[in-house]
Measured scan of single mutants.
Amino acid sequence: WKVTVKGVEYTFDNPEEAKKFAEELAKKKGGQIHYKDGEFQVH
């Protein structure tokens, strides 16, 4: 499971962890999460 933040990729074994990480980042940066092709992208 991948989380991509401004072109930087983070990989997680667990989808729950990936989702949590993406949500935290989106909150911090005031961005939005897009889920696409099996990965979370924070913009």
Rank of each mutant, 00 (worst) to 15 (best):
F40W: 15
V42Q: 03
G7L: 03
E39R: 06
E24S: 09
V42E: 03
V8K: 12
F12P: 00
F40M: 05
K2R: 13
D37A: 04
D13M: 07
K20E: 09
T4M: 08
E39T: 09
K2L: 08
K29Y: 15
Q32I: 13
G31R: 02
E16S: 10
G31K: 02
P15A: 13
K2M: 06
E17F: 05
Y35A: 04
F12T: 00
G7Y: 03
E16P: 01
E23F: 10
F40R: 01
G38Y: 10
G30D: 06
T4H: 05
P15K: 15
G38P: 05
A22N: 01
T4L: 10
L25R: 03
Y35P: 02
Y10V: 02
Y35T: 04
E23W: 09
H34M: 11
V42D: 03
E39Y: 06
E16A: 11
G30H: 07
F21G: 00
V3C: 07
F12S: 00
E23G: 04
N14H: 07
G7V: 01
G30Y: 06
F40D: 03
A18T: 00
I33Q: 02
G31A: 09
F21E: 00
Q32W: 15
V5K: 00
V5I: 13
Q32R: 08
H34G: 06
D13Y: 07
Q32C: 15
K19D: 02
V42S: 03
F21W: 07
T4E: 02
G30R: 06
E16M: 12
K2E: 01
V3H: 00
W1E: 01
Y10A: 00
H43L: 14
E16L: 12
G31T: 06
T11L: 14
K19Q: 11
T11E: 08
F12Q: 00
V5W: 15
A22H: 01
Y10R: 01
V5A: 12
V5P: 00
Q41R: 08
D13H: 08
E23M: 11
K29A: 14
T11Y: 14
G30M: 05
P15E: 14
P15N: 06
V8G: 06
L25I: 13
E9R: 07
E24R: 10
D37T: 03
F21K: 02
H34R: 08
P15W: 15
T4Y: 08
N14V: 03
K6F: 14
W1G: 01
D37W: 02
K29R: 10
G30A: 05
V8W: 11
E17K: 08
V8S: 07
F21I: 01
Y35F: 11
V42L: 07
H34P: 02
I33E: 04
K20R: 12
N14E: 05
H34F: 14
T4A: 03
L25G: 01
K36Q: 11
E23I: 12
E39H: 11
Q41N: 07
F12Y: 01
A18Y: 04
E39P: 03
V3Q: 00
K36C: 13
E9P: 04
G30S: 04
K27M: 12
W1K: 01
F21C: 11
Y10P: 00
K29E: 15
G30F: 06
A18V: 01
I33F: 06
V42C: 08
K19Y: 14
L25T: 07
K20C: 14
Q41T: 12
V3E: 01
K19F: 13
V3W: 01
V5G: 05
K28Y: 11
G30K: 07
K27R: 13
G38L: 06
A26Q: 06
G7F: 05
V3M: 01
A22K: 02
F21M: 03
G38H: 14
F12K: 00
K20L: 11
E39V: 13
K36H: 11
A22I: 06
N14M: 04
E24K: 09
I33K: 02
G38I: 03
K36T: 09
P15Q: 14
E39G: 06
D37G: 04
W1I: 05
F12C: 06
E17Q: 10
K6G: 14
E24V: 08
D37P: 08
K29F: 15
E16V: 11
V8D: 07
E23P: 00
Y35R: 02
I33N: 04
Q32F: 14
E23Y: 12
H43T: 14
A26C: 13
T11H: 14
T11C: 14
K29T: 15
A22R: 03
G30W: 05
G31W: 15
K29D: 15
P15I: 15
H34N: 08
H34V: 14
V8R: 12
V42N: 03
G7H: 04
W1D: 01
G38R: 13
K27W: 10
E39N: 10
T4Q: 04
V3P: 01
H34W: 12
G38M: 07
G30N: 09
Q41I: 14
A26R: 07
A22E: 02
P15Y: 15
G31M: 13
V42A: 03
I33Y: 06
K2I: 09
K29Q: 14
Q41F: 11
E9V: 14
A18M: 04
F12E: 00
W1H: 04
Q41G: 04
K36L: 11
K36D: 06
E9I: 14
K27D: 10
L25F: 09
F40S: 02
E9K: 07
N14W: 04
H34Q: 10
V5L: 11
E39M: 08
F21R: 01
E16N: 10
E17W: 04
A26P: 01
V8N: 08
K19E: 07
Y35I: 08
K6I: 09
Y10M: 02
K20W: 08
W1P: 01
Q32D: 08
G38A: 05
V8M: 13
K29W: 15
E39C: 09
K28S: 12
G38E: 05
E9M: 12
Q41P: 04
V3L: 02
D13W: 07
Q41A: 10
G7S: 04
Q32V: 14
G31N: 05
G38N: 11
K2A: 03
K27I: 11
P15R: 15
F21H: 01
I33G: 03
K2F: 06
N14G: 08
I33C: 09
A26K: 05
F40K: 02
A18I: 01
G30Q: 06
T4K: 08
K36V: 13
G31D: 06
F40C: 09
D37F: 02
Y10G: 00
V8Y: 12
K27Q: 12
N14K: 08
K6Y: 15
K27C: 14
K28N: 11
F12D: 00
E17R: 06
W1F: 08
V8F: 13
E23S: 06
F21D: 00
E16F: 12
A18F: 05
V8H: 11
T11G: 05
L25P: 01
V5M: 15
K28E: 13
V3K: 00
G7P: 01
V8T: 09
I33R: 01
G7R: 02
K27T: 10
Q41H: 13
K20Q: 11
L25A: 07
W1N: 02
F12M: 00
E9F: 09
D13K: 09
F12G: 00
Q41D: 05
E9Y: 09
K20T: 09
P15D: 04
E9A: 12
F40E: 04
K28R: 09
N14A: 06
A26I: 14
G30L: 05
E39A: 08
G38W: 06
T11K: 13
F21A: 01
L25E: 10
G7E: 05
K2Y: 05
G38F: 12
E24Y: 14
K36N: 09
G7N: 07
E23T: 09
K19S: 06
K28G: 08
K20V: 08
F40Y: 11
W1S: 02
E17A: 12
L25K: 03
Q32K: 11
K29V: 15
E17T: 10
H34K: 10
K19G: 05
Q41M: 11
A18G: 01
V3F: 03
K36E: 09
K20N: 09
A18R: 01
V5D: 13
F21T: 01
E16Y: 13
E17G: 06
V3A: 01
A22F: 04
G31I: 06
A22T: 03
P15G: 09
K27P: 02
T4C: 13
D37M: 02
K6H: 14
H43M: 13
K36G: 07
K2Q: 04
H34A: 10
D13L: 07
V5Q: 04
Q41W: 09
T11R: 13
V5F: 15
K20Y: 08
K20F: 08
F21N: 00
K19C: 15
G7M: 02
D37S: 03
K19L: 14
G30P: 05
K29I: 15
L25S: 05
K19M: 11
K27V: 10
E23N: 06
Y35Q: 05
H43Q: 10
K27N: 11
T4R: 09
K19T: 05
K36W: 09
F40A: 03
A18W: 04
K28T: 10
D37K: 03
F40G: 03
K19W: 13
